[in-house]
Design a binder for these strands. Sequence first.
DNA 1: GATTGAGTGTTGGCTCGACCAACATAGCCG
DNA 2: CGGCTATGTTGGTCGAGCCAACACTCAATC
Lengths: 162, 162
Amino acid sequence: MPMHHPPSRTLARVEDRPTWLISRNFQRSSGLLAAAFESAGDGLRSYHYRLLAALDEWGPASQADLGRGTGIDRSDVTAALSELESRRLVKRSVDPAHKRRNIVTITPAGVERLLELDAIVDDVQEQVLKPLTVAQRRQFIALMVKVLAAEDESLTSAAPNP
Amino acid sequence: MPMHHPPSRTLARVEDRPTWLISRNFQRSSGLLAAAFESAGDGLRSYHYRLLAALDEWGPASQADLGRGTGIDRSDVTAALSELESRRLVKRSVDPAHKRRNIVTITPAGVERLLELDAIVDDVQEQVLKPLTVAQRRQFIALMVKVLAAEDESLTSAAPNP
DNA sequence: GATTGAGTGTTGGCTCGACCAACATAGCCG
DNA sequence: CGGCTATGTTGGTCGAGCCAACACTCAATC
């Protein structure tokens, strides 16, 4: 249960900077998320949720594909899947076509847990957005999406040595 | 130089959730920030910047006050200040009134470095906000501030065992 | 067919920011 | 004086994000 230790004063040169606001929003949001996940019993964390969601939405997949799809590193996928597997939320089986490859499947129990986590996560959305009106929420989301749109166009002019 | 490994696919149940968008925005923003700080030469990171800024804005202060003011844990303040001190950007001297207390002061070199970092950080703001118009930037900032306003009013209804 | 090269899963490690606990010391206040 | 709090320091933990190296499998190329 991570306690909340926000700064007690505001730094003028920092308080209105987007990077700072983003960082504080993230801290708050991820704190609420962590608390919610923790109260859900199992030691499942965000990696587990993302992996379960990916398996549910995309169907069985190899670990490498899961990693690429979710943006989680191969090694972290391995670790998280092991934890999921030990809770019987996921099953690993060898791909007959490529013996080196695992095919990961979500189990019925995994789907069940995923739905519980979905509800928890939805709850946190509400908490986070609480101060905003419905219209503002839409705006907020739209703006964040727009900011992220530049995510790949990042070849500006900062690479002296190619 | 941390490479950028975003998810290659989008998770339907996740892609529009504010917590997810906040998290991705944070990742992008902090990635740019880290890259910018790294290119600044010294191994200074965000803690150092916040502490230098605090000292510059609030004047000399004890480590405990710095910690409370910036929201950085006492122990992390100690460590970061030691690194700043070894670079002569900050000076520690014992408070004559309270021998246990250090009075930390930013040096001229510290102010100088702070200004450089300021420029770097400002640059990152631009990068982050690039996709937005001026009006949208204002909105974005205002919305983030508003969301954060609820930061302390967080006694909802999720504590079964007090 | 044997040799390369790429992809896969796993192990083990690292960094950063955010925490927390314990301790010795210093000051305060009863 | 004895307790109490505050301070700085040491030495951890954790989650998320990374990276490197290895063993192995497969496909393509020589």
